[in-house]
Computed example of a mutant assay.
Amino acid sequence: MPAIYGLIIPVVIVDLFVTAYQTVCFPAYKIPKVKRSEYLALDRRKLQYLTFGQKLNCLYCDYANGVFAYASEIAGRTEWYWCPIKHPDNAIRAHNYYDEFIEFGDGEEFPKKHKAKREACRACESPNGCATKTD
């Protein structure tokens, strides 16, 4: 248990740093901010049938997984804006934008497509409402 709960400090640090990062950087490039509240659903603790220990464990997992999903969305929007290029090998990506990235090695069309990808990124208001079809 100490190994599991010992990660709370790095998780809180990730939460603080990615929040600060998007607070400073996203407005500068007109990238819509990720709503933290959409990723942190700390609701399982309300279940009456769980013991106190189970509620604590659920709260920890809700928070940690929410923070990592939130950070992944911020990283995904950053990648979408700055470098929306697919990798030559199949890379597993958590965010929803990767499938719409520019093909690896498409140097001739990259400047035009990159501009379109940036505009689509700026139009994004939520993970489910992002317009990624720009080719």
Results as ranks from 00 to 15, higher is better:
residue 1 M to C: 07
residue 1 M to R: 11
residue 3 A to K: 12
residue 3 A to G: 05
residue 4 I to K: 08
residue 4 I to Y: 11
residue 7 L to C: 04
residue 8 I to E: 09
residue 8 I to M: 13
residue 10 P to L: 06
residue 15 D to H: 15
residue 15 D to C: 05
residue 17 F to M: 15
residue 17 F to Q: 13
residue 18 V to T: 12
residue 22 Q to M: 13
residue 23 T to R: 11
residue 25 C to V: 12
residue 25 C to A: 12
residue 26 F to P: 05
residue 26 F to Q: 08
residue 29 Y to M: 13
residue 30 K to N: 11
residue 31 I to Q: 02
residue 31 I to C: 00
residue 31 I to T: 03
residue 34 V to R: 04
residue 34 V to H: 00
residue 36 R to T: 04
residue 36 R to I: 03
residue 37 S to N: 06
residue 40 L to R: 05
residue 41 A to F: 04
residue 41 A to M: 06
residue 42 L to N: 10
residue 44 R to H: 07
residue 46 K to T: 08
residue 47 L to Q: 14
residue 48 Q to G: 12
residue 48 Q to N: 10
residue 48 Q to T: 13
residue 48 Q to W: 10
residue 49 Y to F: 12
residue 49 Y to M: 04
residue 51 T to Y: 06
residue 51 T to D: 06
residue 52 F to E: 15
residue 56 L to D: 10
residue 58 C to A: 13
residue 59 L to K: 10
residue 59 L to Q: 12
residue 60 Y to P: 05
residue 62 D to S: 04
residue 62 D to E: 15
residue 65 N to A: 05
residue 66 G to P: 02
residue 67 V to G: 02
residue 69 A to K: 08
residue 70 Y to F: 14
residue 70 Y to S: 02
residue 72 S to T: 13
residue 72 S to V: 01
residue 75 A to Q: 07
residue 76 G to K: 06
residue 78 T to N: 10
residue 79 E to N: 11
residue 80 W to A: 13
residue 81 Y to M: 11
residue 81 Y to E: 08
residue 83 C to Q: 09
residue 85 I to P: 03
residue 88 P to F: 09
residue 89 D to M: 08
residue 91 A to I: 09
residue 91 A to Y: 07
residue 93 R to C: 10
residue 93 R to K: 14
residue 96 N to R: 14
residue 98 Y to A: 15
residue 99 D to A: 14
residue 99 D to Y: 03
residue 100 E to Q: 12
residue 103 E to Q: 14
residue 105 G to I: 02
residue 106 D to S: 14
residue 106 D to V: 00
residue 106 D to I: 01
residue 107 G to I: 03
residue 109 E to V: 10
residue 111 P to E: 07
residue 113 K to C: 02
residue 116 A to T: 08
residue 117 K to I: 09
residue 117 K to L: 11
residue 117 K to A: 15
residue 119 E to N: 02
residue 120 A to K: 04
residue 123 A to G: 13
residue 125 E to G: 05
residue 126 S to F: 00
residue 126 S to P: 01
residue 127 P to I: 05
residue 130 C to G: 12
residue 131 A to H: 11
residue 133 K to M: 03
residue 133 K to W: 01
residue 135 D to P: 10
